[in-house]
């Protein structure tokens, strides 16, 4: 823990929340190490904090109870395609879905507000939470509200917690050699839509966050192609690169992806070029990376493409023996290792 802290002159920096390696190092060294040694109720049949998966899973009878929690802060609170309310519901629903729990038993909703926060903004956020809950079929079953003094926090923080039951637990570490990697749609839309707003860059175009609940999409794959899915992860902060690195390193395989087949909209490509940001490093809030058995890839792709949230799904890669834990990118010119972002990408000039 000291290494992390001294490295940043004793203070937490923003990059440690950016979803990249800096954040993972902070979490691993500060939280996971000690929490992971706490005895689990049913250790042989549990996924605990040490796994650093999208959530935890506890075996109950022949089912798994999946639990996940997520705090949501975002600037700006309202962005093209969504707001913090929609984000806070979708984020937690998706974390459950990534572990196979596509039916949400209940969500909690805890809101912390800054004194002076506009009531009509709060109402707008609340109604978009309700809409997202309806979309996901996920009820909010309990909640909590706190208000803090002016400048004691920035506007609003929403924490949601979700529980779900599943018979097919999906992990992020189950990839084997030869498995195919599917992305469920075009990437980097959320992060770039928010960034273009946040830095007042003044870009106009079809740049809209993809924030959406993925549980129905995932359910259709799990039921339509039983046994096909070997691993799943949603590429949120840190983007596709970060998620693939995590899947590769936990599964002990290399992942070879082909840049030319990764779905990217024209707007995302353009903004990426303008700001010097690699879309593979940018957050998604309505996409999943799915590892599937090679023989089932076509079937899964067909199911995904039949769903409104998976129309642009594509097979983007294969698990290989080369470079275990690494991600190799075929650019069309040559192959290189894909970088893992170390923090939130910033617009750059050079």
């Amino acid at each position: 823990m000291t290494a992390v802290l001294t490295a940043t002159s004793g203070r937490v920096t923003l990059k440690q929340g950016g979803g990249g390696r800096a954040m993972r190092a902070l979490i691993e060294k500060l939280f996971v190490r000690d929490f992971a040694t706490m005895p689990l109720h049913n250790p042989d049949f549990s996924v605990g904090v040490g796994a650093m998966d999208d959530g935890a899973a506890i075996r109950i009878g022949d089912e798994w109870l999946v639990i996940t929690t997520d705090s949501h802060v975002i600037h700006p609170i309202f962005f093209p395609g969504g707001d913090i309310g929609r984000l806070s519901i979708c984020g937690t629903v998706n974390d459950l879905a990534m572990m196979g729990a596509t039916t949400v038993l209940g969500l909690t909703c805890s809101v912390i507000l800054e004194e002076g926060f506009a009531l009509d903004s709060l109402e707008a956020i609340q109604s978009s939470m309700i809409a997202a809950c309806r979309e996901a079929g996920a009820p909010v079953v309990t909640g909590d509200t706190k208000v803090m003094g002016k400048r004691e926090l920035d506007g609003i923080v929403i924490n949601t917690c979700g529980i779900g039951l599943t018979r097919t637990l999906v992990r992020d570490n189950g990839l084997s050699l030869g498995d195919r990697i599917i992305v469920t749609g075009s990437i980097a839309e959320h992060g770039l839509a928010v960034m273009a707003k946040r830095h007042e860059i003044g870009i106009e175009g079809d740049l809209v966050s993809d924030v959406a609940p993925l549980n129905d999409l995932v359910a259709s794959v799990l039921s339509g192609a039983p046994g096909a899915v070997t691993a799943m992860k949603d590429p949120t902060r840190g983007g596709v690169s970060s998620a693939l690195h995590e899947m590769a390193s936990k599964s002990g395989v290399g992942i070879l992806i082909d840049e030319r087949v990764i779905p990217v909209t024209a707007a995302v490509r353009a903004v990426g070029e303008l700001l010097g940001i690699d879309p593979l490093h940018v957050a998604n809030e309505g996409k999943a990376l799915i590892g599937v058995r090679a023989d089932a890839a076509d079937r899964v792709l067909e199911i995904l493409r039949a769903h409104s949230l998976g129309r642009n799904a594509a097979v983007i890669g294969t698990c290989v023996a080369e470079r275990p834990g690494g991600v190799i990118l075929n650019t069309g010119f040559g192959k290189r290792l894909l970088a893992e972002p170390e923090g939130e990408p910033l617009p750059r000039i050079c």
Partner: peptide, 8 residues
């Protein structure tokens, strides 16, 4: 216009 997005 940059590949479909506009900017001042």
């Amino acid at each position: 216009d940059f590949w479909g997005v506009r900017k001042d």
